[in-house]
């Protein structure tokens, strides 16, 4: 299977460790992983902030870069949801762009979807002896409808104790440019989320989106809570040998 890694601009620039984790995890599971070098950004920030023209240009670029792969895997529920859910609304029905989107978009998977729905595995052979709580990010929960896929994977990680997060389905307050356009409400939402995380007694907060973790992690760190944030891929890539 020819699998392309769509790293996403946030991971590429700020969280290369997440990308490396996806590569090692997928290879461990027998996939041939490629990284199309021409990829950049899905355009979500532009579209969702009201800069449709720039966003459409980036969407066109995306469909060109990722044409022809059997599967495109993204370690981000939000960017995968952008491609699958929002791209079809960007193109004029019947246009060439719409056809290109219809070709690529259904083959774009968020990591946990790819593992469970395509590779049909819930146990990826990971080892991570820590107390972890999981925050289902909005676009993975309500955009992609990932359901319990990420927690099914986490439950099969040896040594990992998964503790439920109260009010898990509530938004953390990131919301892309929302975090700087409405800083007071965003910070209040972040503060409530960190309080729920602290209540679980977890050492690690896990999510399928580093953008949300950037916001929650920045808040946890500012409050000197000692709770670490980790992307789902990094936990799933951990093995006993590596520890």
């Amino acid at each position: 299977m020819r699998v392309a890694l769509f790293i996403t601009c946030v991971n590429d620039t700020l969280f290369p460790g997440t990308g490396k984790a996806v590569v090692s995890l997928l290879r461990r599971l027998g996939c041939d992983v490629d990284f199309p070098a021409a990829q950049t950004c899905c355009g979500q920030m532009h579209v969702n902030t009201g800069y449709r023209e720039e966003g459409v240009r980036l969407a066109r670029h995306f469909t060109e870069v990722f044409a022809g792969y059997d599967a495109v895997v993204a370690p981000s529920g939000s960017c995968a949801a952008m491609v699958r859910e929002q791209y079809p609304k960007l193109a004029r029905p019947g246009s060439k762009g719409a056809a290109a989107i219809a070709e690529v978009a259904p083959r774009v998977y968020e990591l946990s979807e790819f593992l469970i729905d395509v590779l049909k595995t819930e146990d990826v052979g990971a080892y991570f002896p820590h107390r972890v709580t999981y925050h289902p990010t909005c676009h993975s929960l309500r955009g992609l409808h990932l359901g319990d896929r990420p927690t099914r994977l986490l439950r099969n990680v040896r040594g990992l104790e998964l503790v439920p997060l109260p009010g898990a389905e509530e938004c953390c307050g990131f919301g892309g440019t929302f975090a700087v356009k409405n800083p007071a409400v965003s910070a209040a939402m972040g503060a409530d989320k960190t309080r729920s995380i602290m209540d679980t007694g977890a050492e690690v907060l896990c999510a399928a989106d580093n953008s949300c973790l950037l916001h929650i992690g920045g808040t946890l760190s500012r409050q000197k809570t000692g709770v670490r944030t980790m992307h789902l891929a990094e936990i799933l890539a951990s093995t006993e040998e590596a520890q």
Binding site: C138, R142, C171, G176
Partner: peptide, 10 residues
């Protein structure tokens, strides 16, 4: 007002 949302979808 159109920006008064984190687009969480709830």
């Amino acid at each position: 007002l159109p920006y008064a949302s984190s687009l969480c979808g709830a």
